[in-house]
């Protein structure tokens, strides 16, 4: 199985120490976390982790089960790039004089979908929200003009094929939770396996 980029979405309780509990699931297996974001979710009081890693599906599936095993985790999903809508936010600080003199600022803003967040005499801060290559592109453009600072946020992602967590949460709150199918590769190929 090939390694590829997976985005893991974890719905959790808001609990001190849970970030560590989740992070060490990866570090214990020497898996690098490419990006990690914590935020509120569509449901009040439920938190949402968005974690990006490069791994095989087999490994990602096992990681999700280990994550779900944590007491304060409600649910973990994993998705490929195609299955999500995602954004990252980047900020670029550049010297205002150089930029004003040498760069066609208007073109830059248009081509890269950038916004000027702050314009001061000494420096200007641009902002771009987009995919990795889009934010990377602007670094290349700005580097020759003396890019002073660059920072990019963790990924946030929406799962295309998700109805949100409102309904799911009801199941969790119910004392006898409803049926929750866990995929199994053999069951998907049932006809091959159960032909006795």
């Amino acid at each position: 199985m090939l390694k590829q980029e997976y985005t893991i979405t974890v719905y959790t309780e808001n609990q001190i120490g849970l970030l560590n509990r989740i992070a060490i699931i990866f570090s214990r297996r020497k898996i690098n976390i490419e990006s990690l974001n914590t935020s509120p979710s569509e449901v009040d009081s439920v938190h949402r982790f968005t974690i990006v890693i490069n791994e095989t599906e087999d490994v990602v599936k096992k990681l999700c089960r280990q994550i779900e095993k944590q007491v304060e985790v409600l649910k973990a999903y994993y998705n490929t790039q195609e299955e999500i809508v995602w954004q990252e936010l980047a900020l670029y600080k550049v010297p205002t004089d150089v930029i004003a003199e040498e760069v066609k600022v208007e073109r830059l803003l248009r081509e890269h979908g950038a916004k000027a967040v702050v314009i001061r005499k000494d420096y200007t801060v641009f902002e771009v929200a987009g995919h990795r290559e889009e934010t990377d592109n602007l670094i290349k453009v700005l580097e020759p003009y003396g890019l002073i600072e660059f920072v990019r946020s963790a990924r946030v992602a929406i799962i295309k094929n998700s109805d949100g967590f409102h309904e799911k949460l009801k199941e969790f709150e119910h004392r006898e939770p409803g049926e929750d199918a866990i995929e199994n590769e053999y069951l998907a190929k049932k006809d091959e396996v159960f032909s006795m």
Binding site: K62, R65, E68, K69, I182, N184, E185, Y186
Partner: peptide
């Protein structure tokens, strides 16, 4: 009883959680 054990080391043809 632990879903994380199913398929962890040995693939199950039939998992009985």
């Amino acid at each position: 009883i632990d879903p994380a054990e199913i398929d962890k080391n040995v693939k199950a043809t039939v998992p009985v959680w």
